[in-house]
């Protein structure tokens, strides 16, 4: 469908532009302002230029060390949960019942974790994993595993990852399910006549049809896990030590805990920039994939 050029369309977009500019650009200006200054309390500010940024990117300083360490942890976390949630989500989507009331029941149960406030998700797992009152912690300890997410780094990591898989795999599954449902039955019949194997059907029909939704899934999951705050904060508080302190947790600690506005602002800007770049890469890939698909469809 060709779109007509119409500059008056700006009037239709204007409300959105104003609302988002009010809540995005205005605060960001404050952040830019703070990032160049230092404060010793009492609302006295001093010019600091790019000092904070230099410190931030230098691992030998306290600020830089903390930032880069939390960034590393966060990237590792995002990659691990993507590696688990994407394949698992595809498997779950393929396992959906075909028809009947079970479809609705499965959809509702799948969507349930997505609608739970994030700190309640944290609370659920905090309780569930406790060795004294939680089912999971109790069972694990009784079959001989020494599991305690409060004191052991690895246990804390496992808990946070399992919690995220519990919380968000459904999103990937629902997206893939939506993609699968758009495949016409005729495709499968053709595959059957050709005697295609189960794997061939998946590779040649289902995976290409899921491409687009999978891209959205990966984008959403990467972004949301990259800025994860509430759930691990409730469960582990970033600990034991600093082992599960992700970038957002570190940032809130500096900004609202220590009120180190300059440092926090500099960190915010770098953090935002990383997100913006990743977002742009995804967006470009997505729009390119979209236009390629259109060209192919046009050719057919």
């Amino acid at each position: 469908m060709d779109k007509t050029v119409n500059q008056k369309a700006w009037f239709l977009v204007l409300p959105v532009f104003l609302v988002v500019a009010f809540s995005a650009v205005l605060p960001l200006m404050t952040v830019v302002n703070y990032s160049m200054q230092d404060t010793f309390g009492n609302n006295q500010f001093f010019w600091n230029g790019v000092g904070w940024f230099k410190e931030l990117l230098d691992p030998s300083t306290d600020l830089g060390g903390r930032f880069l360490a939390s960034l590393g942890r966060n990237l590792f976390f995002s990659l691990v949960i993507l590696a688990i949630e994407v394949p698992l989500g595809i498997v779950i989507a393929l396992s959906m019942p075909r028809q009947g009331w079970t479809v609705a029941a499965c959809l509702v149960i799948l969507a349930l974790p997505l609608l739970i406030p994030w700190n309640v998700v944290g609370t659920i797992w905090q309780i569930f994993g406790r060795p004294d009152i939680g089912l999971m912690g109790y069972v694990l300890n009784h079959i001989g595993l020494d599991y305690n997410y409060v004191s052991n780094d690895i246990d804390a990591w496992v808990t946070v990852i399992v919690m995220d898989v519990w919380h968000w795999t459904s999103l990937v599954a629902l997206l893939c399910y939506a993609g699968l449902k758009s495949i016409p039955e005729a495709y499968y019949q053709a595959a059957q006549i050709d005697g295609a194997s189960r794997w061939a059907v998946f590779k040649a029909i289902q995976l290409p049809k899921m491409n687009r939704v999978l891209l959205i899934a990966v984008l959403l999951r990467f972004m949301d896990s990259f800025m994860i705050y509430t759930e691990p904060f409730v469960v582990t508080g970033g600990g034991p030590g600093n082992s599960t302190t992700f970038v957002s947790i570190e940032l809130v600690k500096i900004a609202l805990g220590q009120f180190d506005l300059g440092k926090a602002a500099a960190l915010s800007l770098v953090y935002n920039l990383i997100i913006l770049i990743v977002c742009w890469i995804f967006y470009t890939v997505m729009t390119n994939a979209g236009s390629e698909r259109k060209q192919q469809e046009g050719a057919v």
């Binding site: 809540s23 404050t30 809130v252 900004a255 609202l256 915010s268 997100i275």
Partner: peptide, 22 residues
Amino acid sequence: FFWLLSNRMAPAAVYALPFFNL
């Protein structure tokens, strides 16, 4: 459109303090 999308992805932690001031 991209700018809008990028705001959907912006970390809430970045905005907590400026929002508080605003």
